[in-house]
Design a protein around this nucleic acid. Sequence first.
DNA 1: GCCCAGGAGTGTG
DNA 2: CACACTCATGGG
Length: 243
Amino acid sequence: MEVRRSGDSIIVKSTRNEAESEPEILAYLRGQDDLSDIHARLAEDRVLSRGLERVRGFRLIKMPEWECLISYVLATYSNIPRIRKMIDSISERYGHRIAQGAFSFPDIDALRKASAQELRACGLGYRAEYVASICKTLDAAELERLSRLPYEELRADLKTLPGIGDKVADCVSLFGFGRVEAFPVDVWVRRALRRLYSVTGSYETLRCFAKERFGPLAGYAQEYLFFNERVPAKQGNCMFSGD
DNA sequence: GCCCAGGAGTGTG
DNA sequence: CACACTCATGGG
């Protein structure tokens, strides 16, 4: 096991052989969440209760708000290897070195100094304009104001920023601002809802379904549904549809 | 070379 | 509101 700090969260990684199909990150540690209580509540859901054993110990990550916001803007219409590369690239250029070959994520003021053209050179593509624009209209005071808003107002305000739509607004609300009631819907969650709950429809439709079904723990339900759908389960070790 | 990615913005029916 | 199209580029 390898433990490292990332902002105010602690990430626990597996150092076992890569051959296993287990996820690289075993657990997201966020001390204040009572996992036994969360699992007990989610176990009331007939579908989730079947898969809770598989996600024992999983905690939602609490990323720094700013790092989370930009990271998810970069993640739009991209893939994991490239997202990692984009983040590494802007960190090297605009962050500060925290160890040999390791750079911090650039803060707002540092990133604001970069032009859209320079950001494009980091491989951000059309996302460069989004990041540059967000840097202009956002500062520490605004982030502080956002952090005090209730979830619905927070996601609405986030959505006014360029490059932030429904999905990114919910990811930032959940992983950055720690709003556990947020329920980001991506292709995997959409797939899980159709397969396990026979629910389809618009983003708003699925979001409302989750709000009613999972309430204030929708974020944890989302993470478990996502993992269950994304990572192939061994036979007899996943959630099954139907009752 | 070809296809598409953990979406968002814009325009149209 | 529901689609369709475009966005810029690297990775599989």
